[in-house]
Amino acid sequence: MRSGYYKETIVEHINLTDSTLQRAWIGIGLLLVIAAPFHFEFYGLSLITLMMITAIGAMGLNVLTGWTGLISLGQTAFMVLGAYAYAISTESWGWPPLLGFVLAGIVPAIASVIVGVPSLRLTGLYLAITTLASAFIVNHLVLEFDGLTNGSSGIFVNRPVIFGYAFDTDAKFYYLTAGFGILTILACLNLRRSRIGRALIAIRDNDNAARVMGIDLRAYKLYAFVASSFIVGISGALYGIFLSFVTVDGFPFLLAIEALAILIVGGMGSIAGAILGAVFLVGLPEVTSFVFSWMGSSAQSLLSTSAHEIKGLLYGLIIILFLRLQPHGLMGLWQDARRTWTLWPLKY
């Protein structure tokens, strides 16, 4: 009986995949992503688009929280900055959307250096508080500079036209989002297996040991901040286009909690976990409304009057239950299942 997979060289170790089966599954997954608009109508398609945007944001947060172990409660700040950078540059200044997307990554990245530098000395609890504070400050600044941001009335955002091709229908916007999603996955996978990615993991696992190995903690923590907020900023811009309207109210504080909940549900530090978690949490309200409609009309009217509260209640319960019962998330469950499958009938 096979006792496990063994990798003998560094190249084998950092290869993204070495199994034909996995390649086949990736191919099937890509086909499904391409085929989705032919099967799903408006609502289903917009739900999948939202899942993808959320997954991009969650992968961004994963770089900071999952890999480097820095807790951030201020991801909404970078989403807001990304969305506004895109909206202002394309709608107010008339820049091409591709440049808008670049700006949507760069502006939050610069802002993250400003937030990151004073936070570098802090860990754990204190970092959570500074990032929380900076989220509120960014929201305030956006409202204050109303000449640029239109204040609380917000900015309308059109679907982008890139190289003369208009992403004007839901299906086309879905493909654009899918493209960004695949790019993000590739970027994250490659970052993870590079020198930087290994350094980030080392910092999370034991920062003193990492420092002894010659990892410059300040530089690498800043890398993590910048990379994370670049990706989160892009997801913010996509979310702005998705809503076709950018305001501060479109990015409530609940979004930052949702992002952390996604990582917890999916499994900290795993890219597949971030995607699974996003699918799970975005799909959750739909499942709930299905269950409520099945429970009868009084439950349905409760759902329609207080949807936001029920969503909050569910997020809270999911966070607590997962942390309590399945701290490694869905990916942990999957790994347990796989181990049981290979080793059965032995325990280990």
């Binding site: 409660l73 609890l125 952390l260 909940a261 917890i264 909050g312 966070i319 607590i320």
Partner: peptide, 13 residues
């Protein structure tokens, strides 16, 4: 931290 944040969201709702 996340457990207390989860609690706060539940209480608020």
């Amino acid at each position: 931290i996340m457990v207390t944040i989860g609690l706060s969201v539940i209480f608020r709702s």
